[in-house]
């Protein structure tokens, strides 16, 4: 039987008049790589701070390994690994000194848990005498992850670890999270990048303090109940305007160099869209049927 690592029950958080979290209910199983996906201001950071005992929920309760985040905060602080959204290491200390400090703080040594961070730390080890403030964005995040891991936490909470990091470092970072999962560490991570959702076991889509959906990325994508088309023409701006006017179209959003067009199932086919657009004066129209991505699902859920 799989144990529950994180249990969030009816959690609400308000800052004065502003409601940051509205009745959040999620369970995360032990050993899971769980992602909270949502844009900036969705409430991810507030939720994470409640989980790591830094904030009190206004209502509701959350527990980690059956320890309450409010009452048992002292016990929890021993088994949590937390990496805040902002780079929060000592910039005037070197890479090695930072790691050493956090190891000592948790009553351990770099040597003892080196195997945990080895694959990550090896990449920054050549720069271990460099001050943390002088590292590149990707290296900073690797160091921060090493520091959050050095005491072998049971639960790792990472708040937007890949924000502001280049594409290569981002994918490396996710590889590392995959490795940690294999070692049995439960990882809860948040990200505003929809394309990273597929790398999680399960995701929760979050928007304006509400959960839109909680499931595996595949199930969420399969749950898209309309036809989806990628459409392109020379004048993208006019294309979106025209598509939104068509009564068959339920939504049209720019998506890279294409426009993703959603239509009710089996209502329309490729040829019909092309004809409709050519009538509106578009040339070199390209239309293909595609499967939904997480972002499409997010847009659709957000609209409802």
């Amino acid at each position: 039987m799989i144990n529950t690592a994180v249990s969030i029950k009816n959690v609400k958080k308000t800052y004065g008049e502003v409601e940051a979290l509205h009745n959040i209910n999620v369970d995360v199983s032990e050993g899971e790589l769980f992602g909270f996906i949502g844009p900036d201001g969705a409430g991810k950071t507030s939720l994470f701070r409640i989980l790591v005992t830094l904030l009190l929920p206004t209502e509701g309760a959350a527990s980690i390994f059956d320890m309450d985040v409010v009452k048992d905060f002292k016990k929890l602080r021993r088994i949590l690994g937390y990496m805040p959204g902002r780079f929060s290491l000592y910039q005037d200390l070197t890479v090695e000194e930072n790691l050493n400090f956090f190891a000592t703080t948790f009553g351990t040594t770099i040597k003892e848990n080196y195997y945990l961070i080895e694959s990550i730390y090896k990449q920054i080890e050549p720069f271990k005498k460099r001050r943390a403030g002088a590292l590149s964005g990707g290296m900073k995040q690797k160091l921060a992850l090493s520091c959050a891991l050095i005491h072998k936490p049971r639960l790792l909470v990472l708040d937007e670890p890949t924000t502001g990091v280049d594409a290569v470092s981002r994918s490396e970072f996710w590889d590392m999270l995959g490795n940690l999962k294999k070692m049995g560490i439960t990882v809860v991570v948040s990200t505003p990048y929809m394309d990273e959702a597929g790398l999680c076991d399960r995701v929760a889509l979050i928007q304006k303090g509400r959960l839109l959906s909680v499931d595996t990325p595949q199930n969420i994508m399969n749950g898209y109940d309309e036809d989806l088309w990628a459409v392109r023409s020379k004048n993208i701006y006019k294309l979106i305007e025209d598509l939104r006017q068509l009564e068959e179209v339920s939504s049209a959003f720019p998506f890279g160099e294409y426009v993703h067009v959603s239509t009710p199932p089996d209502r329309i086919n490729q040829k019909m869209i092309e004809n409709l657009l050519e009538k509106k004066g578009h040339d070199t129209v390209e239309v293909k049927k595609i499967g939904a991505t997480i972002e499409d699902c997010f847009m659709k859920l957000m609209k409802n």
Partner: peptide
């Protein structure tokens, strides 16, 4: 600098 956040979530 935000480091207090990390210090607080430590033993």
């Amino acid at each position: 600098m935000g480091t207090m956040e990390v210090l607080l979530v430590s033993p």
